[in-house]
Deep mutational scan, measured.
Amino acid sequence: KKKYVIKVYFEDTGKEVEIEAESKEEALEAAKRLAEELGLKIKKVEIYP
Rank of each mutant, 00 (worst) to 15 (best):
K1R: 12
K1V: 12
K1Q: 12
K1C: 10
K1F: 02
K1I: 14
K1S: 04
K2Q: 09
K2I: 12
K2C: 12
K2Y: 02
K2N: 13
K3P: 12
K3Y: 05
K3L: 14
K3E: 08
Y4P: 02
Y4E: 03
Y4R: 03
Y4D: 01
Y4F: 10
Y4H: 13
Y4T: 14
V5T: 12
V5A: 09
V5L: 05
V5Q: 10
V5I: 07
V5M: 06
V5W: 14
I6E: 00
I6K: 00
I6C: 02
I6H: 01
I6T: 03
I6A: 08
K7D: 02
K7M: 11
K7N: 09
K7Q: 03
V8F: 14
V8A: 01
V8E: 00
Y9R: 05
Y9S: 08
Y9F: 09
Y9G: 03
Y9N: 03
F10W: 11
F10A: 01
F10G: 01
F10K: 00
E11K: 06
E11N: 10
E11D: 14
E11W: 13
E11Q: 15
E11A: 06
D12W: 11
D12I: 15
D12A: 11
D12N: 10
D12R: 11
D12L: 12
D12C: 07
T13P: 11
T13A: 13
T13C: 01
T13L: 09
G14I: 15
G14S: 15
G14C: 06
G14W: 15
G14E: 09
K15M: 05
K15G: 07
K15R: 06
K15E: 10
K15P: 08
K15D: 05
E16L: 06
E16S: 12
E16H: 10
E16T: 12
E16C: 03
E16V: 05
E16K: 06
E16P: 07
V17G: 04
V17C: 05
V17R: 08
V17S: 08
V17A: 05
E18R: 07
E18S: 07
E18M: 10
E18N: 04
E18Q: 14
E18C: 07
E18Y: 04
E18V: 10
I19L: 14
I19F: 09
I19K: 01
E20F: 04
E20C: 06
E20N: 05
E20A: 10
E20T: 14
E20Y: 12
A21G: 08
A21D: 02
E22P: 11
E22F: 08
E22W: 06
E22K: 03
S23I: 03
S23R: 03
S23W: 03
K24L: 14
K24N: 15
K24D: 14
E25L: 06
E25C: 07
E25P: 05
E25Y: 05
E25W: 04
E26Y: 09
E26S: 07
E26H: 12
A27S: 04
A27L: 10
L28V: 14
L28W: 15
E29N: 10
E29H: 13
E29T: 15
E29D: 13
A30V: 09
A30S: 14
A30F: 06
A30P: 00
A31P: 01
A31E: 00
A31Y: 02
A31G: 05
K32S: 11
K32F: 13
K32L: 13
K32T: 14
R33E: 04
R33F: 05
R33M: 08
R33T: 06
L34D: 01
L34K: 11
L34H: 07
A35V: 09
A35Y: 02
A35D: 00
A35T: 03
E36I: 13
E36R: 11
E37F: 03
E37L: 05
E37N: 07
E37K: 11
E37M: 05
E37D: 12
E37V: 04
L38K: 05
L38I: 13
L38Y: 08
L38A: 14
L38H: 08
L38R: 03
G39T: 02
G39F: 03
G39N: 11
G39P: 00
G39K: 08
G39V: 02
L40F: 06
L40Y: 11
L40R: 14
L40E: 09
L40V: 11
L40W: 04
K41D: 07
K41A: 09
K41C: 10
K41R: 11
I42Q: 01
I42N: 00
I42R: 00
I42Y: 01
I42F: 02
K43C: 04
K43T: 13
K43W: 08
K44Q: 12
K44F: 14
K44L: 09
K44T: 08
K44S: 13
K44N: 12
K44P: 00
K44V: 09
K44Y: 12
V45D: 00
V45I: 03
V45N: 01
V45P: 00
V45K: 01
V45R: 01
V45L: 03
V45S: 03
E46A: 09
E46F: 04
E46M: 10
E46H: 13
E46C: 03
E46Y: 04
I47R: 02
I47E: 11
Y48H: 14
Y48A: 07
P49S: 04
P49N: 10
P49Y: 11
P49G: 07
P49K: 02
